[in-house]
Design a protein around this nucleic acid. Structure first.
Lengths: 190, 190
DNA sequence: TCAGTTACTTACCGAGCGGTAAGTAACCTG
DNA sequence: CAGGTTACTTACCGCTCGGTAAGTAACTGA
């Protein structure tokens, strides 16, 4: 059962990367947690970078799924609300990981950085139209570029996730997502 | 001239930490850039952590100065605008540094993390009253906690800084600061 | 039964890390 | 001019890192 072992390695690695970030996790750490030797990891993968990339793919797969779920809501503002909530929930759960590392950060390996940028761009592209339509429908007092607004939204969410997990604060994502929408798009939803 | 050498070391270390982050810079890197040996650094400082802390103090000193400058403006909204612009300018200039690392991130050394939290809290505390008054005066459609709003503001700025420097995008901080105010506080300033 | 593959382990490598002990030139002071 | 201090350098330490070569049980198919 090669695939099972591989999947189990990825799963374990993901947990560690999520908790301690890429440079904070060694091949030995991963092997120890699996009760195997480091060399065994090199039987299944070409190296640390490959494992990390596979983890990244999985994480972005989850984000895509959450985004798709949000986009299946009825109204635009509801789509946005669910997207924000899902993103916050996910980011806070995957601590050091979705949080900061994969999104941006210490790109020691240029290939990993490239891969990350590609995946992240996919996500941004998928929600930008939504942000654009929300901005237009909500009659802002002044025109705002939808790309910038999307950056502000994702930037703000990332920033908040970083802030709260850094300070180990509790966060009510339900309330928070409503307040973000209220602040950014002037739409109040009790 | 002990002090001169020390200051020069700090200055050089700051540049490197800013560019490559704490774990990305070794004592050898710092020494090499100064054309001295690694051991010489240990003559002046107890270790890497001490150098980093000194750098952190300097950086936060700069931020405090910028904040004070902003707070000396006449109107609240102008204070806020200048603060945001200064913060963005500074964050983008000090790349990997103010950007992410010192703000939050891989706190291998718990002492450094503690130090960072303390310094960061100082900054937040100094602008929260400003945010509070801006919120109140701008008659939002719904009450928002000033602490949360401050977190959203700083989180958003950090997020944007991260985003733009990660993707190596140019950024017009003048325009950006106006748009942030517009989005967050419904105040337009051409 | 026996060769071949699979899924590992044991034992190692060289490089780089933070940090230190000992030595040494240059200077200042009595 | 001796003695001590200052500001270093040379040479090392132990450790961990990512990665590899070689060996080995367990299973598989002819």
């Amino acid at each position: 059962m090669v695939q099972d072992t591989k999947k189990y390695i990825i799963k374990t690695a993901r947990g560690l990367f999520s908790e301690y970030s890429y440079p904070g996790v060694s091949m030995n750490d991963i092997a120890q947690k699996l009760n195997i030797t480091k060399a065994a990891l090199y039987y299944h993968f070409t190296g640390k970078a490959e494992i990390y990339k596979k983890v990244l793919d999985e994480v972005f797969g989850n984000i895509s799924a959450h985004t798709a779920e949000a986009l299946s809501e009825k109204t635009d503002s509801e789509k946005l609300r669910v997207f924000i909530k899902n993103y916050l929930d996910f980011g806070l759960k995957e601590k050091n990981f979705t949080k900061a590392l994969m999104l941006k950060l210490s790109p020691t390996d240029p290939q990993i950085k490239k891969h990350t940028i590609k995946l992240r761009k996919q996500m941004t592209t998928s929600i930008q139209p939504l942000v654009a339509s929300v901005i237009e429908n909500k009659k802002m007092s002044c025109k705002i570029d939808s790309y910038l607004a999307t950056s502000m939204l994702t930037g703000m969410m990332d920033g908040l996730i970083l802030e709260y997990s850094f300070l180990n604060k509790r966060i009510n994502t339900e309330k928070m997502s409503n307040q973000i929408i209220m602040m950014l798009f002037q739409k109040v939803e009790v």
